[in-house]
């Protein structure tokens, strides 16, 4: 069905006019969204966008290159602190500080990538986990980074524009998310992307074929960390205040869960996974407000659980959704999408 007859068909951005049409429509909807939606939902979309950026990067590492990272909150923190410090201490404008913050994270990504040349699977997971925890410890103990007191984000201006409300920030975030998504998609279609995939499928075979493992493995870490760093730099401006405890282990695990739930090795999956889990993360606290189900859950928790049982139900539901997706669709949300697409393309047969 998806047969490609030449190289250019493989690398083209849009497969058909229909896809272009939907893309344009989707972009238009995104542009109009803040004009019709309440500010709260704009904030939620901003939060989701940041997760998308990080998960795109993490998917390049985990889904495409077959490495693992449990320390992405560390790169995220480096990006956040890097951006704020470059703006407040070095007085750089935001548009320079943000990519520089991402680059600082990329340098750390490169460094973490070096042990990855010798470590695999669970060993690599532990090494990256250690890195993530170390970052917050170092930041927390260093006065230059504000220690445990944290840092306040400076006012955000780009040239003549002041981006101080969620709606103003939204347009910047959407633009960056679209650009970074296209960049990730293009990267995968190039020589570099094919090298990543080759490493994932069989690294020894890849090396025999002439793929430089040292270069490409560290590059995958650096690219992934760059995405996380840029996401972190933007997150600092969503919260407007950061402190080390925000970037905890749970955050790293969440990023990884988004990749797996969305679909390993898929750009679409990254977006879907980040959107679903970030949305649930913010929204499940309103579970009691759902008619009937909410009331039933509340009675259930008061009868059979502890004082705060109700609040913990959101985590149970959260976990349940993840488990169910994995059980019924091991390829994640992307897998569901593929199946639906095939179903409709071959309908009614």
């Amino acid at each position: 069905m998806d047969m490609k007859r030449n190289y250019y068909e493989d690398v083209q951005l849009f497969r058909s006019g229909v896809v272009v049409f939907w893309f344009v429509l989707f972009m238009a909807a995104l542009a109009v969204f803040p004009l019709v939606a309440k500010n709260y939902y704009v904030y939620v979309v901003n939060y989701i966008c940041i997760n998308i950026i990080v998960v795109l990067g993490l998917n390049i590492l985990v889904g495409y290159t077959g490495q693992i990272s449990l320390g992405h909150a560390g790169f995220f923190a480096i990006g956040a602190y890097g951006t704020i410090i470059l703006m407040t201490k070095a007085h750089l404008p935001f548009i320079i500080a943000l990519p520089l913050g991402g680059l600082v994270a990329a340098v750390f990504g490169f460094l973490v990538g070096i042990p990855a040349l010798r470590l695999e699977g669970p060993y690599l997971a532990i090494a990256t986990l250690g890195f993530g925890l170390t970052v917050t410890q170092v930041i927390g103990r260093t006065d230059f980074f504000g220690g445990r007191q944290g840092l306040h984000a400076p006012p955000l201006t780009i040239g003549p524009w002041h981006l101080n409300t969620d709606k103003e920030f939204y347009y910047l975030l959407i633009t960056l998310t679209v650009l970074l998504t296209l960049a990730a998609r293009n990267l995968i279609k190039t020589k570099v992307g094919r090298a990543f995939i080759a490493i994932r499928d069989a690294d020894i075979a890849a090396e025999t074929m002439g793929v430089n493992l040292v270069f490409y493995k560290t590059l995958a870490f650096a690219v992934s960390a760059f995405y996380a760093g840029v996401g972190g730099g933007l997150y600092a401006f969503v919260l407007r205040f950061i402190e080390p405890e925000v970037f905890n282990l749970f955050m790293s695990v969440m990023f990884l869960a988004m990749v797996v739930v969305g679909g390993l090795g898929s750009i679409m999956g990254s977006i879907a996974g980040a959107t679903l889990l970030a949305w649930l993360d913010l929204q499940l606290r309103n579970i009691v407000a759902i008619p009937y189900l909410g009331e039933w859950l509340e009675t259930f928790s008061k009868t059979y659980m502890t004082l705060t049982g109700m609040s913990n139900i959101q985590f149970i539901v959260f976990g349940l959704i993840m488990v169910l997706i994995m059980v019924f669709e091991p390829l994640g949300i992307f897998g569901m999408w593929i199946r639906t697409k095939i179903y409709w393309k071959t309908w009614p047969f």
Binding site: N39, D166, L239, V246
Partner: peptide, 12 residues
């Protein structure tokens, strides 16, 4: 105890 969630809840 997660500031991102505090901000979401307060705004909502």
């Amino acid at each position: 105890y997660n500031p991102a969630k505090t901000k979401a809840g307060v705004k909502q």
